[in-house]
């Protein structure tokens, strides 16, 4: 705080300085503390009890062997070292990575395409935008169920339509090779509208005189897209990438509903494995350790992106 003290203010005798209000912290300490408590406690207590305390106890649990019933047994960092050498850990991280690598380009390219189209003068633009956004407000469980039915290998609509064109449809969520692609496809469908809305807001924030200047200079459509639109859209792109990676690494609902991690673990992801470790195998200690490893991975990826943004994100 750089508020001038009273003596300093008295020495400062410039004629037109308006009288500075005495900052609130100088008056009645207890009363002020009372107000601070009044405004903060309603959020501080629930955050403390339902987030901060569980956070700390999760760290504590991760250092123990525990099946949720019998007493906890101290094992130090064993859970972490075991997890890091367990091939199952590598497997679920690999699946999560494949999910993110498939999902992100799909939603970004799709969302950008829709945003570019809607950024033009179109009749019924508000209606179109609303329809693209509808899946975003639908819950993951519903989306997963609807797509599980559409991608049903036996009599699902997608394979029936493929059959009409003489293409034999894959087994989708019943086939180890196709289970993850099925999850990726339906997730991208759900989030397309979200990405579109963010990118459309970004596109509309690009000043039109930049394009006019480029037109005067004779830039063609492709040059305008690569040299103006994409660079000036980079803050929105950055936001989409950061959020998608954070959410993508925590993917669970749609996997649990569509494939249950199967067939034979071929689509199991990190959070699904955490759930199974806790509630199916009674290995709560390892589950907690794995959740912290996942958190560390997400944190590192996010920090790297924030550090690296200077190289490609252009803030106007």
């Amino acid at each position: 705080m750089s508020t001038p003290t009273l003596t300093e203010r008295r020495r400062d005798r410039r004629p037109h300085t308006p009288p500075q209000p005495i900052p609130a912290q100088r008056r009645g300490g207890w009363k002020k503390l009372g107000w601070a408590l009044f405004f903060l406690l309603p959020s501080a207590i629930p955050l403390l009890v339902f987030t901060l305390v569980p956070m700390v106890s999760s760290l504590w649990v991760s250092l123990h062997k525990w099946n949720l019933i019998s007493p906890m047994q101290w094992v130090g960092l064993d859970n972490y070292t075991n997890l890091l050498t367990d091939p199952m850990t590598r497997r679920v991280f690999l699946h999560t990575l494949i999910y993110v690598a498939g999902y992100l380009p799909l939603v970004y390219a799709g969302g950008l395409g829709l945003a570019l189209m809607l950024n033009q003068r179109l009749k019924g633009r508000a209606f179109l935008r609303a329809t693209y956004f509808l899946p975003v407000v639908t819950s993951w469980v519903v989306v997963a169920l609807v797509w599980k039915w559409l991608l049903n290998p036996a009599n699902g609509l997608v394979n029936e339509v493929l059959g009409v064109f003489g293409v034999p449809g894959p087994g989708w969520w019943t086939d180890p090779q196709w289970a993850l692609p099925a999850v990726i496809l339906s997730s991208a469908w759900k989030d397309l509208g979200f990405v579109m809305v963010i990118l459309l807001a970004g596109l509309q924030a690009i000043p039109s005189d930049v394009y006019e200047a480029a037109l005067v200079d004779g830039a063609n459509a492709r040059q305008r897209f690569w040299r103006i639109t994409l660079p000036l859209l980079s803050p929105s792109t950055f936001f989409v990438v950061v959020i998608s990676l954070i959410n993508g690494f925590q993917v669970f609902d749609q996997v649990y509903v569509m494939t249950g991690g199967g067939p034979s673990g071929s689509s199991q992801v990190v959070v699904g494995h955490i759930y199974d470790l806790t509630f199916r195998y009674g290995r709560a200690g390892e589950a907690s350790a794995l959740s912290w490893i996942l958190f560390a991975v997400i944190l590192v990826i996010t920090v790297v992106q924030i550090r690296g943004q200077r190289k490609w994100v252009h803030y106007a």
Partner: peptide, 14 residues
């Protein structure tokens, strides 16, 4: 910053 799955086990115990 802490994702829900970190909290799930202890919250459940709580």
């Amino acid at each position: 910053m802490v994702p829900l799955q970190v909290l799930v086990v202890p919250l459940f115990i709580e």
